[in-house]
Design a protein around this nucleic acid. Sequence first.
RNA 1: GCCGAAGUGGCGGAAUUGGCAGACGCGCUAGAUUCAGGGUCUAGUGCCCGCAAGGGUGUGGGGGUUCGAGUCCCCCCUUCGGCACCA
Length: 833
Amino acid sequence: MAGERPDHYPFREIDAKWQRRWEESGIFRVREEVGRPKYYCLEMFPYPSGRIHMGHVRNYVIGDAVSRYKRMRGYNVLYPMGWDAFGLPAENAAIEHGVHPAIWTRENIQAMKSQMRKLGISYDWDREVTTCEPEYYRWEQLVFIRMFERGLAYKKAATVNWCPSCQTVLANEQVEAGRCWRCESEVIPQPIEGWYFKITAYAEELLEWCDRLTGWPERVLTMQRNWIGKSEGAEFDLPVVGRPDLTIRVFTTRPDTSFGMTYAVLAPEHPLVDRLVADEAERRAVAAFRAEVARESEIERLATDRPKRGLRLTVRAVNPFNRKEIPLFLADYVLMGYGTGAIMAVPGEDQRDWEFAKAHDLPIIETVKRPPGWTGEAYTGDGVKINSGFLDGLSVAEAKRKAIDWLVAQGLGEAKINYRLRDWGISRQRYWGAPIPIIYCPTCGTVPEKVENLPVVLPRNVQITGKGGSPLADVPAFVNTRCPRCGGPGRRETDTMDTFVESAWYFLRYCSPKFEGGMADPAAVHYWMPVDQYIGGIEHAILHLLYARFYTKVVRDLGLFKVDEPFQRLFTQGMVIKDGAKMSKSKGNVVSPDDFIAEYGADTARVFELFAAPPEKDLEWSDQGVEGAFRFLNRVWRFVQTHRPALAPPGNGRPASLSEPGRAFRRIVHETIQRVTDDIEEFHFNTAISGLHELVNAMYAFAGESLERTAAEERRYLLGEAIDTLLLLLAPFAPHLVEEMWSQSGRGESVFRTAWPTADPAALAKEALVIVVQVDGRVRSRLEVPPDISDERLKAQALADAKVRPWLEGRTVVRVVPVPGRLVNIVTRAGAA
RNA sequence: GCCGAAGUGGCGGAAUUGGCAGACGCGCUAGAUUCAGGGUCUAGUGCCCGCAAGGGUGUGGGGGUUCGAGUCCCCCCUUCGGCACCA
């Protein structure tokens, strides 16, 4: 594939030279400088799988361009990189190849780091963070203890999502359509004891702050809002006929529809059911129904188009609003996990209830007046209340309020807010993760490790089999310990923490990665946080981004830092695809960054990835597009090599007057400054680079201008200014090439220590405008006019124009619409005046 | 089913947010570079009619608002994402 490329710039030498110099000079290392504006640019750190792929490259190239640009704008830029180093693949490698996860991980990090260096990404490597190091995870163990003390970390037995292939529990956020987020195995529900973080305590704050995260993509915020799933309504009790000792608690978002309640439903596994059954026969029927529902897989349960199944109980309940008796059902469409696990059913105003009522021949009462012509089934819109006793005549919103007031007055219930969000299950029955610092003592119970004993180090000598249960349980030296409270024998927790815990705070650690007094030095966090720009894939829209937001609020409330939200601005970049599919080994459509860099150099990879598509969209890999980027860089190189020696030295003054072509050329140069600057600020790297293409095209054209039209001295000055400008504007995208040419121009200082250019307003001023003349919306002519021309003169000139007049022949001008600086539209109608 | 985003040449994509549609790049065509290939340079390149000048037409489809619509409004189609019985 690597054919001969006879004429190209020496990227191999240039890349290596500048990568070495940047590293030796430490130019990208930063420290806090109070008073100087900071900029914290962050990419989602990778899992050290062994190789970076083109998706990583895209992520890092975007961040690097932003970081280098911001440095040139004078910011003190924190731009770190690290490793999300705990996780299953390391353990699986251990099972398959017998290599210890720690060694496998370390080797992968070395390999990936060297790939990143070859791309010329300007990280401050002094701040590298590796999450599997005890120096890192000790701090989250400390936070775990503090959370435990406040009830924010707790243990419970619950039905969890079990991935049979990964042999571990998954959090709700890690299940996608009933399948494991990593291996896509079908998840099965299983009752297991485990540790939870009380993210639900932050549901409201997480939701409220969504409105204030103005630098986030709207779709990510929408996904987070949906995930949190707030619903407001009421909770109240239904009496059970003949059973004064029992009531059924229901939750509804539509208390206004209560008069339309014609039956009620309990989730099949509702604990109250056992006390509601009439006799042994019904008990057996319930057991059979439960078994039938439980047999369905998670995925089957998710299908909404399936008929709703139910079992009618003998016992009846009472609708307290109208005191009528109603039947009671168990049904698979009511979930134990939400609200109270029981509902009042209003088939007139709820589609699910409607379907169930039809299937079981239950009465339907309409409590909202239908709009004229309504032909649907259940009606969920607004309208006037009917058939609703004391609520009749009210609007839905008014009736909701009044119904809740009534429930409160009757002592039956109250207003209630429910969230779809569940607590974050963080226990993993696997080895390669941070140990949970908890000890079980037969006398003291569940006791946190003493803070001075942290970190609880993950032992190295472990038999990793991949067969169920944490391998730590088989390490007596780890498990058997002393109770921190009474000193008696105790057993350590053998579950490890979800790796998403490490990634929930690594951005804090970067602020002071070697700090030994806690997660991070509060002064450093105060200076650097929040992250000004976070860049990563959309796949973390809920998962990691929600956890990081939550964790940041937790450590704030623990009094560690004063940060409310970790990420000021978020950018979600698209995937890199080839032949219409995500690059993957199994599809055989992978382009290796190593091969690519060897063939074209780092700057071509960077420029191609930024130019080929807007960064938020998927990027289709194109070998020909790569050639285009390579060609462009060579074109720049050749131009500078050809013209630079003849140019005036930098800093020489501009000639007193410029020729007309000279002024036009200079305008292009300065317009490009403005355009590229605006584009980078908006993350429009593709159009920024197309602007640079146009500048280079103009430079070739101007260099070819005849000497009669522009004096040699003027030309030397203007081309010199243009080359300097081009190099500065190109520097964030093609840093190696630009550094080389910049130093060849006799500059001692790195281009990244040089200020970003600003457009000269005098150069931007236009001497004449080209105005389009339309007749009835069609372009018929163009006028060259002075910029300050009046509307009246413009109209007159347009009407008098020789190319326009034939189109007015035999027609009457109805009106003339001038648009200053752009066009004139002459509107006509048929027939002479 | 619900929510969200998007549909522009042969391809990737532009269009100052209501004002010249197709910038820039890829590809293609022709020419130049005293051989070929590569590289480089020049010109052309939405579609239709025309030798040309020129004209018509054109942003998923249909309607509408406007002097003027890729952009705004209504209906429909398609694709991609997210959620999925959350009461």
